[in-house]
Design a protein around this nucleic acid. Structure first.
Length: 1073
RNA sequence: GCUCAAGUGGCGGAAUUGGUAGACGCGCUGGAUUCAAAAUCCAGUUCUUUCGAGAGUGUGGGUUCGAUUCCCACCUUGAGUACCA
């Protein structure tokens, strides 16, 4: 009986749907396994054969895990908010919800035909109000949270307010805006409500701010950094400009370090981890302030120590008394704001221990000048606690707890709060330039500074003489688009401001320049230029004839800068001279901190994520504005449903599309969205007009699948704890710095808030490779209507033209009649075709699948012609899952005939017939080696090799004419994850009434693979020359004897005596000589 | 420029605790079946060859009895990223 894929596949797809075969239960005795695909955006074009690749792989794995006795969660849904539907709406007036609905229906139809084991009862759609209710809810949670660096997690804003009320914000160690003003508890209490809200907004994890954003005028919206490629929008390639706008932002920077650390704990592809690491861009260095010359600096009370004194100090640090050592051991490991330093100078006094951030000095009592010290320290804003040697030696625990108490509840002398180490020295100076550097060890190599042309100080410090030049330079830079600036890296340009900065260590004057190689939006927008150690600074100095002092020992810098760190010794640098890079770096930071003009800092490239989009088709914010301040709508009134609008474009006065809505005001008394007419009322307020970006809904959907219909929570605690996180996540690598980073951020936030049980959402991730198209070309001779076959174009002027791949057969021969009659080829109807050997051969090239290249293959056609099982097998057979590989439909005949051969094993002519006879040794061997290999392959995600294993098995069993049930029944389970339809059909023909989906996976038994003899390769000098079958129980000597006596060995040696004979029993024999 | 990945027949690819290179499939060649085609089946298919054999996994070196696999240098392709201080 011929295998009829059309009937069989239809039958089982209906069976699965009717019986809800793949519905996952939230309660089970079985261990859980969660397999997820990145959900698709339902585009109007539908699926091509490249899309299901990852879905097929995850489906095979999910089905395999069911056979292995797991309770498998394998859901699917749609990321259904997005720009294409909106643009289609703008063009046609169709509501995006309608087109999205239609696209989803198409997708579902296509997906169902491939036979996926999705639990559709858990489907989510990000554009569904029942879903985005929770997106809005998370937004509110973020708004109500701040990041406490001391506890290193997000906390409720209420705890922050409590601290403000109690002691102001001086000691709050939070991730916040940079321009925070310090206030006391008294000041906080007298601030107006609005002022308080403004301050809190500087701490919230989602906040409003005037941000410079990437504005795309053509799309009428703001784009995220990862939506811009080479200075133009990823979608459509429109120009992007920088523009200031009030926007919601997400304080993802708070999680920079944890996002970095978390990468170590998850099994994700290394390239993807690398790109997240680069994106976060951690660099360790120092912030340094340079004063601008123009004011006589106040002579400070600080004593500058000579190098000699410093050495003495170092020695002192190393020679501690027993009590000192005991105490130091207890407190030296404190981190962050509670970090202690030992033997530190404050003013002219050397203190035993100091915590700079908390202004806390810890000393041993009994010093002569105790009273004077105390007074001076208090004046400087430090708190002092003292202990005796005995106290420390007898009860160090008590001492430490007192210190901890003092750290937690600092008692700072109020008068000098702001007079901390960093600002005290610089207050006389009108302007200072802050720079970030990763090489504070090279600070004596600074010979000039460079500011970005946009730097705010430029206009203030430029001298009269240089004004014209500087202004000309700035306007020239402004005219160049960002794209030009990026494309043209080689041209060195800049202008001297006429001003000088004071080198903080040497006191020397250094010129201040502006130059566009310094970026306004990275770091502080200014650099200390060390031309001998940085190539860009070097080139700039050379170009403008600025001195290049050499501060490296024995290094030639006449041609280029010396950028190596390891092994470099610093010279001509006062107290840093003679030190190696690492030591110099530490000492430089130490000195800066002590002298108060700099401090060690870790800088991240990761910027806070802009969260507002001027679009219609996205989640509305649950926000209204009262006196210009944003207010959250209470969670119990969610969802705030997207309003209807007449037009999907921005309004004429430049407001986002929601500005067109007439029902878009919040009635704070009635707790509902009302008509804009009611805005006259005192209790009705305008709602936010922006919507959320595409990544909002996709940042937590994997949690929602665990309990998708829960109306009270994202998911119930029990379900979240049961399913925990994704065990296997499959999707494209293009989401590396978008979805995958944001989702990790939200997961960590939800974890901090105790909502989810784990702080990484996916244990293992696999990026499936792209399936490329194999385009076909016909060649038209230049200026004629003659087409030359591929083999005839040599030396001719021809124009290659893409032709539809469906017009070409497996042998690259063009169907000429079909080509002439193709709708797109009206111009070539009467063309002449020059053949070779009677056929027209096309050229082939591998390219991305795209409509314009006529190389797109639709899975629907494949499913009709060859069946879903063939499609599934073939996509896996193409090559390793993670690799990009070209599609060539002709290859599918291989897997298709495999299925036919498999089917035939179970039939005797037209009747189904399997025998209950005992299988032979050979049959068992074939089965068990197949079980072993397939199991290993699936566990290693090496799906391509298990398809060949199936082929080998079926070929062998066909040769053996095997029809034993004991072999064929396990075989059908092995095949079932890959080709589930044919497997179900054979399974039921074998007499089973239940679906095959949970039949247990055959168990490998090694005893069937035991051999008594081995075909040994006999090699000479490593080259295999012939093979020889020998019993496996032969000893080494016996093997050697037999081999050496063999006639072929004698012939190979041709009379020579071998130097050595290597015998590895069971493996190889190698004769050397 | 930097980071990462990968280079094996006409094509997709297989083989790594170092041990028979090219499994499996496509394509191709020849044959059977057929009026013919499709489908199916059988045989062959890395290259060179004086038919004995020899060479061969991007290139050049190294380690080893033995290297597609390990090490060094280089070349090529792809991906990501970019004046990041």
């Amino acid at each position: 009986m011929q295998y009829n894929h059309l009937d069989v596949e239809k039958k089982w797809q209906e069976f699965w749907a009717k019986n809800q075969t793949f519905k996952a239960s939230n309660e089970s005795e079985k261990p859980k396994y969660y397999v997820l695909d990145m959900f698709p955006y339902p585009s109007g074009a539908g699926l091509h054969v490249g899309h299901p690749l990852g879905y097929i792989a995850s489906d095979i794995y999910a089905r395999y895990k069911r056979h292995k006795g797991f309770n498998v969660l394998h859901p699917q849904g749609y990321d259904s908010f997005g720009l294409p539907a909106e643009q289609y709406a703008i063009q046609t007036g169709q509501h995006p919800a309608k087109t999205t609905e239609a696209n989803i229906a198409t997708y579902r139809k296509q997906l169902d035909k491939i036979g996926f084991s999705f639990d559709w009862s858990r489907e989510v759609r990000t554009s569904d109000p029942e879903y985005y209710k929770w997106t809005q809810w998370i937004f509110i949670q973020l708004f109500n949270s701040w990041y406490n660096k001391d506890t290193d997690k997000a906390e409720d804003v209420a705890t922050l307010e409590k601290i403000f009320k109690k002691e102001g914000n001086a000691k709050v160690n939070a991730v916040s805006d940079e321009d925070i003003t310090i206030f006391s508890a008294e000041e906080w209490k007298v601030f107006s409500k609005t002022e308080q809200e403004e301050i809190l907004l500087q701490y919230r994890l989602t906040f409003l701010s005037d941000t410079e954003v990437n504005w795309c005028p053509a799309l009428g919206t703001v784009l995220a950094n990862d939506e811009i490629v080479n200075g133009v929008s990823e979608r459509g390639g429109h120009p992007v400009v920088r523009k200031k706008m009030t926007q919601w932002s997400m304080r993802i920077s708070a999680y920079a370090q944890r996002l970095l650390d978390g990468l170590e704990t998850i099994d994700w592809p290394q390239p993807l981890k690398d790109s997240q690491t680069n994106w976060i861009g951690r660099s360790q260095g120092a912030m340094v302030s340079f004063k601008v010359e123009g004011n006589t600096p106040e002579s400070t009370s600080e004593v500058k120590l000579s190098y000699k004194e410093l050495e003495a100090l170092k020695e002192l640090r190393q020679n501690l008394s027993k009590a000192e050592t005991t105490l130091w051991d207890e407190i030296k490991n404190k981190k962050g704001a509670a970090k202690f330093r030992k033997k530190y100078t404050i003013g002219t006094f050397l203190v035993d221990y100091v915590c700079l951030a908390k202004h806390l000095i810890v000393e041993f009592s009994g010093k002569e000048d105790e009273a004077a010290r105390t007074e001076f320290f208090h004046k400087k804003g430090f708190n002092v606690i003292r202990f005796t040697n005995e106290e420390v030696l007898q009860n160090v625990v008590k001492v430490v707890s007192e210190i901890n108490f003092a750290i937690q509840f600092p008692k700072v002398e109020k008068t000098e709060i702001k007079n901390n180490v960093i600002t005290s020295e610089t207050k006389q100076s009108a302007y200072k330039i802050d720079v970030f550097t990763t090489r504070p060890d090279t600070i004596y190599g600074v010979s000039f500074m460079t500011l970005a042309p946009e730097h705010e100080l430029v206009s203030k410090i430029t001298t009269g003489a240089q004004k014209a030049e500087v202004e000309a330079y700035i306007s020239a830079t402004a005219k160049r688009s960002e794209r030009d600036r990026m494309a043209d890296v080689k041209t060195i340009s800049g202008a001297f401001t006429g001003a000088y900065a004071i080198h903080p260590f040497s006191g020397e004057k250094v010129q201040i320049w502006i130059g566009d190689y310094v970026l306004a939006n990275y770091g502080t927008g200014a650099v200390m230029a060390v031309p001998c150690g940085d190539q860009r600074d070097y080139d700039f100095a050379k170009h403008f004839n600025i001195p290049i002092p050499n501060i490296f020992e024995g290094v030639d810098i006449s041609q280029a800068a010396h950028t190596d760190k390891e092994g470099t010794v610093i010279a001509n640098s006062d107290f840093l001279s003679g030190l190696k890079y690492k030591k110099a770096l530490k000492l430089a930071i130490f000195e800066m901190e002590k002298r108060g003009f700099g401090y060690g800092k870790i800088n991240y490239r990761l910027r806070d994520a802009v969260f507002s989009r001027q679009r219609y088709w996205g989640e509305p914010f649950p926000v209204y504005y009262k006196d210009g301040m944003p207010q959250m709508i209470d969670a119990k009134h969610l969802p705030i449903v997207l309003p209807e609008v007449e037009k999907y474009l921005p309004t004429e006065d430049g407001k986002p599309p929601l500005g067109n809505a007439t029902e878009w005001a919040w009635d704070s008394r009635g707790k509902k969205v009302v008509s804009n007419d009611k805005l006259k009322n005192k209790t009705v307020y305008p709602l936010e007009l922006n919507t959320m970006p595409g990544w909002a809904g996709s940042s937590y959907y994997f949690n929602r699948y665990m309990d998708p219909h829960n109306e009270n929570e994202i998911a119930s605690k029990e379900n979240l704890e049961y399913w925990e996180n994704i065990d296997l996540y499959i999707g494209g690598s293009e989401h590396a710095t978008g979805h995958l980073l944001y989702a990790r951020f939200w997961q960590k936030f939800l974890f901090d808030k105790g909502i989810v049980p784990v702080d990484e959402f996916a244990k293992k991730l696999i990026n499936q490779g792209m399936i490329l198209g194999t385009s076909a070309f016909v060649y038209r001779e230049e200026g004629t209507n003659k087409f030359l076959s591929k083999g005839l174009i040599e030396g001719k002027q021809v124009q290659p033209i893409h032709t539809d791949v469906s017009l070409v057969n497996a042998s690259d021969e063009l169907d000429i009649e079909a080509f002439k009659n193709h709708v797109l080829n009206a111009d070539y109807k009467n063309a002449e075709f020059i053949l070779e050997e009677g056929v027209y051969k096309v050229g082939r090239e591998v390219e991305k699948m795209s409509k314009s290249k006529y190389n797109v293959v639709n899975p629907d056609n494949i499913v009709v012609d060859y069946g879903a099982d063939s499609l599934r097998l073939f996509e896996m057979f193409l090559g390793p899952l993670e690799q990009a590989k070209p599609w060539k439909t002709s290859g599918i005949s291989g897997v298709s005939s495999f299925l036919k051969k498999l089917w035939k094993l179970y039939f005797n002519g037209e009747v189904f017939e399997v025998s209950d006879a005992e299988p032979t040794k050979d049959e068992l061997k074939t089965l068990h080696k197949t079980i072993k290999k397939v199991e290993e392959d699936i566990e290693n995600f090496s799906f391509n090799t298990s398809v060949s294993t199936f082929m080998i098995a079926v070929n062998e069993l066909t040769t053996l004419k095997c029809n034993k049930k004991e072999i064929l029944e396990p075989l059908v389970i092995l095949v079932s994850p890959y080709a589930p339809h044919i497997a179900e059909e054979l399974w039921s023909l074998l007499g089973n009434n239940e679906s095959i989906s949970t039949a247990s996976f055959p168990v490998f038994d090694a005893k069937h693979l035991v051999e008594s003899a081995k075909v040994y390769p006999i090699s000479f000098n490593g080259k295999m020359r012939f093979t020889l079958e020998l019993p496996l129980d032969l000893s080494k000597d016996e093997i050697e004897k037999t081999v050496m006596a063999h006639e072929k060995t004698i012939a190979q040696l041709a009379g020579r005596t071998p130097k050595k004979v290597i015998v590895v029993p069971g493996k190889i024999i190698n004769i050397v000589g």
